[in-house]
């Protein structure tokens, strides 16, 4: 069974229809890239999946259970589905270590000692152990994003959602974050990535979803999709990257 199964999902803000009849699924170990122009609904889709936005219609099945009609709390669901934001959203009142510990002790109710060990393990993976005592305001953008990834990973989520994780970074910091994400993908983490990094979508992910005006226009194997786009929209979208 798929971990996530999105069925006929739609979302509108007032009269403005942002997502229309979205269907796709995420299997264990999948690295899915969602690409498309700004305003095509990519981020809204991701935010709907994490219930930061309430979908207007359709179903989101998590292990076959529709989370939109679930009696259980959405907090418990969110703890299983991690999210990394464009703007990092690290807690400014805590240092790097506490950012990675608080969710484990308060949400997963782990012992503090165990939580610290887990946090250090993931901070080590993203190369941020030297900074455990730093406050987020003292870090660079790339470093903040790596801490945010460690924070999400420390919750041992089943799926990790990335909402344009490198879009707010200076060019020289994009690499360090993508390197961490590539490592996660190689380790078998199930990931859903909204991105403008075409190289990442083509080379790291095993599934690509192309969105245009709130609709999925193409999806499938990245190699094929990038080599032979089927729709005019995708061709023109990709051509903008080739020109650069």
């Amino acid at each position: 069974m798929s971990i996530l199964d999105i069925r006929h999902l739609s979302k509108s803000f007032g009269k403005h229809q942002v997502l229309t009849d979205i269907n796709f699924s995420v299997e264990k170990g999948d690295v899915t890239s969602i690409i498309g122009a700004s305003g095509s609904g990519k981020s809204t889709l991701l935010r709907c999946i994490n219930l930061l936005e309430t979908p207007s219609g359709g179903e989101i099945l998590y292990h076959g259970e529709n989370i939109l009609s679930m009696k259980k709390s959405e907090a418990a669901y969110r703890a299983r589905v991690g999210m990394v934001f464009q703007s990092f959203n690290l807690f400014y009142n805590m240092n790097v270590l506490e950012n990675c510990v608080i969710g484990q002790t308060r949400v997963l109710r782990k012992k503090r000692k165990e939580a610290v060990e887990t946090a250090i393990r993931f901070l080590n993976q993203v190369g941020m152990t030297p900074f455990v005592k730093a406050k987020p305001a003292q870090l660079s953008g790339g470093q903040k994003q790596r801490v945010a990834i460690a924070r999400a990973m420390a919750m041992s989520p089943e799926v990790l959602l990335f909402d344009e994780p490198t879009s707010a970074l200076d060019p020289e910091m994009v690499g360090e974050v993508l390197a961490v994400m590539q490592k996660l993908a190689q380790d078998g983490m199930t990931m859903l990535v909204v991105t403008h990094e075409m190289a990442f979508a083509r080379d790291v992910s095993n599934h690509v979803v192309f969105m245009h005006e709130g609709v999925i226009r193409e999806e499938g194997d990245p190699k094929q999709l990038f080599a032979k786009p089927q729709t005019e929209e995708m061709r023109s979208f990709l051509s903008r990257f080739r020109e650069q």
């Binding site: 969110r78 991690g82 934001f85 807690f91 400014y92 969710g103 949400v107 999400a152 919750m155």
Partner: peptide, 21 residues
């Protein structure tokens, strides 16, 4: 608003989000 979203995203309830973040 990002602080609230960050807290919600790791599964905190409204009360926990308020208290800790």
């Amino acid at each position: 608003k990002g602080q609230t979203e960050g807290a919600k995203a790791i599964g905190m309830t409204h009360f926990q989000t308020m208290l800790f973040v």
